[in-house]
């Protein structure tokens, strides 16, 4: 199966039955568009965002009816992190992208502007709790102490 994807993907690894890992060769938006249109990867399971020390990794978990789960790893720089939103391809991506935007601070170009998720409206801009160097700041309350304490 990996041969079909050679023009589209690189570093293809099959780590377990039905679990394929790869990185996109083309821009990730085009790559996902082609995977959806030509290879039946028509279900977006979720998008994971993580910080690996030097970069952000955005993992797109795509699946198709035969049970194959493809994890597409897009690596972007932390400084001014920006990538194209895949909401035109997968409507459900709106929640996953909002989540990464709030918690890691990755900007998704083309993500519809609406209520934020999941942080409160008053949460300060530029404060992203899932970053590795994040420390609870003044705006975070402290767990209430019991009377005995």
């Amino acid at each position: 199966m990996p041969k079909d994807f050679e023009h589209l993907l690189q570093n293809i690894e099959v780590k377990a039955p039905r679990r394929v890992w790869a990185a996109p060769k083309a821009p990730v938006y085009d790559c996902i568009g082609e995977l959806k249109a030509k290879f039946n990867f028509d279900h977006l399971c979720t998008i994971t965002g993580l910080e690996n020390g030097e970069n952000f990794e955005i993992l797109y978990h795509l699946s198709r009816q035969n049970g194959t789960l493809l994890t597409l790893r897009d690596t972007i720089k932390i400084e001014g992190a920006k990538t194209k939103s895949i909401t035109p391809l997968f409507q459900s991506a709106i929640w996953y992208e909002k989540e990464i935007n709030d918690l890691l601070g990755v900007e998704f170009e083309g993500l519809p502007q609406a209520a934020r998720y999941p942080l409160p409206d008053e949460w300060p801009q530029g404060d992203h709790p899932l970053r590795k160097n994040w420390q609870p700041a003044d705006h975070c309350g402290v767990t209430p102490k019991t009377e005995a304490e």
């Binding site: 989540e99 709030d102 918690l103 999941p118 942080l119 409160p120 008053e122 949460w123 300060p124 709790p129 899932l130 609870p136 003044d138 705006h139 975070c140 309350g141 402290v142 767990t143 209430p144």
Partner: peptide, 10 residues
């Protein structure tokens, strides 16, 4: 995910 007990930004 994120964090608990936000008290009016202060």
């Amino acid at each position: 995910m994120a964090v608990v007990d936000k008290l009016s930004g202060q």
